[in-house]
Write a protein that binds this DNA or RNA. Structure first.
Lengths: 353, 353
DNA sequence: TCGCACTGCTAATCCGATTTAGCAAACCTG
DNA sequence: CAGGTTTGCTAAATCGGATTAGCAGTGCGA
C-alpha cells in the first residue's frame, strides 16, 4: 500500500557509494572526513532525487536523541490561555525541528508519573512541566535526570530545575500605575485579594501574592492607600459579582483593581446593577487579558498573561538545558520572568470630580 | 548523570536466560513457544525487580509501530473548545497506551506538509487532521498512505478517509424544538444566518448550513415560519450586536436563535440596550456552549459542541483504521456524527402573552 | 539401538541509521 | 625503491529490542 520509505541504503546505492559515505556526506561531515567533491555531489543529488529523509526513530535509537520534547501540563483545556502556552512552545520547538508530545495530568500525581515514563520510553530530549495557573508545585522525583523546565510554576522544594513564570510583581505595579497615571488617588479597591499582604485566596496561587506585592509597592510609593481589599474564595465571575455588591452596599469606589478578568466580569455586572458606569463613575483594571476582556463593554483594560511568550521561553530555556554539558552539575534553579504587557482599553478614565 | 536505562539484556542476564527468551516471555508468547514455568517466573521476577520498560524507540525501529499518533490542527489556541478536542483525543489515546504529537498549521498548506513529514519521520501509527471549526478541507495528498481521520472536517474532494463531525443538523432541530416546546410560534428570528437555505456566511462553515437545515426542518414540520433571518459576516459579538440592533429598530421579536454563543453575547447587549429582558420578553437559544454561555446573565441555553467527545471519537475511528488489514482497500470515507447535547439554562421561557 | 518427534531454549538476523576502525591506492621522501 | 603518509572510501559494530531458524537433550516406538 504505502511505498516503502526511502532509506539511506537506497541513496547510497543510487549514488554508487557505501551507506557510510552517504551518511557522512549528509551529516555534513564529508569535508572533514575527506570525501571528494564528486562523491559528495553524487550523494546529494541522489538524496534530493529520492527525497530522502532520515528515519528519526532509527536515529533516535542510535544517537539517543529524538528531536522531540514532552510537554506535560495539569490541564490543557480549562482555559484558552493554556492553548496559547502550548502554541508558543509548539512554534519555538518547530523552529528547531522538534516536535512536542503533550500530556495532561489533571493534577493526578500517579498519572504524571505514568506520562513521564511514557515520554522517557520514547526517549524525549527534554521535558516541560507546565501548570495552567502560576503556582508552586512538587517536582516529581526523577525529573532531574533529564533536561527539564518548569513552566508557569515554581518548585515547592529547592530544585535545580529552571522555571519560567510571568512577571506578576511587575504586572501588579503596571496595573496600579495605570490608575495613578489616570489621576486616581482615592477610593481604589482591590477585588479578589488584599488589602493586606496576607489576604490572598488559598491554594498557593503565585499570581495573587505577587500582583498584590506590585500593587501595594507602587501605591505606597505614591503615598496612596487602597481604600479596601476584598478576597474571593475563587476568582470566578460569581464571586466578583458578590464581593463587589457587598462593597457597593457600603461605599462608592472610584476605581477597582480586579485580580483577573473573570472577577472583573462579575464586578461589571455589580456596577451595572447599582447604576454605576465604567469608566465615568468607576475605573477598572484587571489581569490576564482573557478573551472576554475585549468582549466586555466597555472593553476592559487589563495586564496580559503572556502565555504565548511563556511557552516560547520555556522551550528556549529547555534548549539551553539540553545543550548544557551533561557532566557539569547543572543549573541553579534559575527563575526566568516573562514581562506582562498592559492592554489599555476603555475601562480606565480620570476620576469624576 | 542519569543511570542508564534497564534493557532487555539486563533482565535476561539477571534471569539467567538469553535475551530471546526474555523477549518471548515479556511479550506473552512464552506459553505458546513452550517456555517453562520456571524460566517464565524468573524472567518476570527480574523484569519487575529492575523495573524494566521496553524502549519504545527500539521497538519502533524493529516493528514499525511507535504507539504514537499525530494530531494536526489548523489552530490550537483560538478557542478553548479546541483544547477540549485535544483533551478528548489525548485521553482516548492514553487509555490505549498511545501518546500524541501535536502540530498546528495555521491554515498554511506548506506548514501542514512539513508537519506531516515530521510526523511520518517519527513513524506515527496514524494521524488525526483536525479543524477547529467544522468545515470542508482539502485533504493533503499522501494522507491516504497511512491511517488517518478527519476531525471536525469533511473532505472537499471525495476521499477514502473517514471523518468525525458534530451532528449539526440534529443540533439545529434540537434548538428549534427548544423554542417550540416552550410554546413559541411567532416572532422567531435567526441571528447569524437564514432565513433562506442559502443565507449563510461565506467561508464554507458546515455549522451554518447544517444548523439552518435542522432549524428549518423542525419549524416547517410544526407549520412555523421564522419571522426573519439575519446573516452576519462573522460570528463575533460585535456583529451579533449590530444585527440585533437593526432588527430591534424595526420589530419586537419573541425569540432568537443565535448561531453561536458569541453572537448571542452581542444579541444580549442589543436587547439590553433596548430595555428588553431575557427570557421574559425574548427567549434566546444558541449553539456551541462556549464558556461564556454560563457566565452570561441570564445563563444562556445552548446546544453544545461536543469537542471532548469529538476528540475521543476521532481516536476510536483512527484505531479501527489502524487495525484495518493493510491489504484491503480501506474504508469508504465514512462520516461519523457525534450528537450535540442541549444545555438548558435560563434564557428560554414561554412567550409573553 | 536407531530414528524421529517433541521440548525448551538460544544464535543470528533485522530494523535504519551513526560511528569507529581500518583498508587499498596514490603520493612522498630520503 | 622500500617505507611512511595521505587520500578517499568502506566494513563492521552498535543502539535495543522482535523474530526466525535451529540446536541440544529427552522420550518413545520399532
Amino acid at each position: 500500500m504505502s511505498p516503502r520509505r526511502v532509506t539511506l541504503a537506497d541513496v547510497a546505492k543510487i549514488a554508487g557509494v557505501s551507506p557510510t559515505t552517504a551518511s557522512l556526506v549528509l551529516s555534513g561531515r564529508g569535508r572533514e572526513l575527506r570525501i571528494s567533491q564528486d562523491v559528495e555531489q553524487r550523494v546529494l543529488k541522489a538524496a534530493a532525487e529520492l527525497q530522502y529523509r532520515p528515519n528519526i526513530v532509527s536515529v533516535g535509537l542510535r544517537t539517543g536523541t529524538t528531536r522531540t520534547i514532552g510537554f506535560i501540563s495539569d490541564t490543557v483545556a480549562t482555559t484558552r490561555l493554556a492553548g496559547d502556552m502550548i502554541k508558543g512552545a509548539l512554534e519555538a520547538a518547530r523552529e528547531r525541528g522538534f516536535m512536542l508530545f503533550i500530556g495532561e495530568t489533571e493534577g493526578d500525581a500517579e498519572l504524571e508519573r505514568l506520562l513521564l515514563q511514557a515520554m522517557h520510553d520514547r526517549q524525549v530530549d527534554g521535558i516541560i512541566l507546565a501548570s495552567m495557573y502560576t503556582r508552586t508545585i512538587k517536582v516529581p522525583k526523577g525529573m532531574a535526570t533529564a533536561p527539564a523546565v518548569l513552566l508557569n510554576a515554581l518548585p515547592k522544594q529547592p530544585s535545580p530545575l529552571p522555571s519560567v513564570i510571568p512577571d506578576e510583581i511587575e504586572a501588579g505595579r503596571v496595573a496600579a500605575r495605570a490608575l495613578l497615571d489616570a489621576g486616581h488617588r482615592e477610593g481604589i479597591h482591590l477585588i479578589g485579594a488584599g488589602p493586606g499582604r496576607r489576604n490572598v485566596p488559598a491554594g498557593g496561587s503565585v499570581a495573587a501574592v505577587e500582583r498584590l506585592i506590585g500593587i501595594r509597592e507602587v501605591l505606597a510609593e505614591a503615598g496612596v492607600k487602597p481604600a479596601g481589599g476584598h478576597v474571593c474564595p475563587d476568582w470566578q465571575p460569581e464571586y466578583g459579582l458578590a464581593v463587589t455588591r457587598e462593597l457597593l452596599k457600603k461605599e462608592r469606589p472610584k476605581a477597582l483593581i480586579c485580580f483577573n478578568d473573570r472577577v472583573a466580569l462579575g464586578a461589571y455586572q455589580a456596577l451595572d446593577d447599582f447604576g454605576l458606569e465604567v469608566p465615568a463613575d468607576v475605573s477598572v483594571v484587571s489581569f490576564d487579558d482573557h478573551p472576554i476582556a475585549s468582549w466586555m463593554r466597555p472593553q476592559l483594560t487589563t495586564v496580559a498573561l503572556p502565555h504565548y511568550e511563556l511557552g516560547r521561553k520555556a522551550v528556549d530555556v529547555l534548549f539551553t538545558e539540553i545543550g548544557r554539558d551533561r557532566e557539569d552539575d547543572g543549573g541553579e534553579g534559575e527563575v526566568h520572568r516573562v514581562p506582562m504587557p498592559i492592554r489599555p482599553r476603555e475601562s480606565v478614565a480620570s476620576p469624576a470630580a
